[in-house]
Simulated assay, not measured.
Amino acid sequence: MTSTPPADLKYTAEHEWLRAGDPATVGITHVAADALGDVVYLELPAEGASVVAGAVVGEIESTKSVSELYSPVTGTVVAVNQAAVDDPAIVNADPYGDGWLFTVQVEATGALLDADAYAALA
């Protein structure tokens, strides 16, 4: 697992990442996963749900705390990572890969940072 944010992703100040695509993929950063500790439960938006950039779309529960999950984009949820819901430890093990959270058909993006700006913030 790398703590350097991948350059091909965009980031929010709340530690979510966005991989551009059709649909786009959303997850949480290594910084967030590390700060949370062992992730034990994910509450993610349902397939077909509308999400709004900057709005709360779910929760991530760890052995330390419960944190809100924010959407980096506005659009419609296309898919949810059921493997991560079933085994939330995947989020800690591979936050930028198998630990992705959901995909969105993007209508608009929120305020996003590139990897350098996120690294400076984190």
Results as ranks from 00 to 15, higher is better:
15 H>S: 15
15 H>E: 15
16 E>S: 08
17 W>Q: 05
17 W>I: 04
19 R>W: 07
19 R>I: 08
20 A>D: 14
21 G>N: 05
23 P>E: 15
23 P>N: 13
23 P>A: 12
25 T>P: 01
25 T>W: 01
27 G>Y: 06
28 I>A: 02
28 I>Y: 03
29 T>P: 04
31 V>W: 11
31 V>M: 13
31 V>P: 04
31 V>K: 05
32 A>K: 01
33 A>Y: 07
34 D>C: 08
34 D>G: 14
34 D>M: 10
34 D>V: 08
36 L>R: 01
36 L>T: 04
36 L>H: 10
37 G>T: 13
37 G>M: 10
38 D>M: 14
38 D>N: 15
39 V>D: 01
39 V>F: 03
40 V>E: 14
41 Y>H: 11
41 Y>E: 15
42 L>M: 07
42 L>P: 08
43 E>D: 15
43 E>R: 13
45 P>Y: 03
45 P>D: 06
46 A>E: 14
46 A>L: 09
47 E>L: 09
48 G>Y: 09
48 G>F: 07
49 A>C: 12
49 A>G: 10
49 A>L: 06
50 S>H: 13
51 V>T: 14
53 A>S: 12
53 A>D: 11
53 A>Q: 10
53 A>L: 09
53 A>V: 02
54 G>D: 12
54 G>C: 12
54 G>T: 11
56 V>N: 14
57 V>F: 00
58 G>Q: 06
58 G>L: 05
59 E>K: 15
60 I>F: 00
61 E>N: 07
62 S>E: 13
63 T>N: 00
63 T>Q: 01
63 T>K: 04
64 K>A: 13
64 K>G: 09
65 S>M: 07
66 V>G: 08
66 V>P: 04
68 E>H: 13
69 L>R: 02
69 L>W: 03
69 L>M: 08
71 S>N: 02
72 P>Q: 13
72 P>M: 08
73 V>N: 01
73 V>A: 02
74 T>V: 06
74 T>W: 04
75 G>N: 09
76 T>A: 13
77 V>S: 00
77 V>M: 03
78 V>M: 12
78 V>S: 15
78 V>R: 15
80 V>W: 02
80 V>G: 04
80 V>Y: 02
80 V>C: 04
81 N>T: 02
81 N>M: 02
81 N>C: 04
81 N>Q: 05
82 Q>M: 04
83 A>C: 07
84 A>G: 08
84 A>W: 03
84 A>H: 07
85 V>D: 11
85 V>F: 05
85 V>K: 03
86 D>C: 11
87 D>A: 00
87 D>C: 01
89 A>M: 12
90 I>M: 04
90 I>D: 07
90 I>R: 14
91 V>P: 09
91 V>A: 05
91 V>F: 09
91 V>W: 06
92 N>Y: 06
92 N>G: 12
93 A>H: 12
93 A>G: 05
94 D>H: 04
95 P>G: 12
96 Y>S: 09
97 G>L: 09
98 D>K: 15
98 D>Y: 06
99 G>F: 00
99 G>E: 07
99 G>S: 10
99 G>Q: 06
100 W>K: 13
100 W>Q: 09
102 F>S: 00
102 F>P: 03
102 F>I: 00
103 T>I: 09
107 E>I: 11
107 E>G: 15
107 E>V: 12
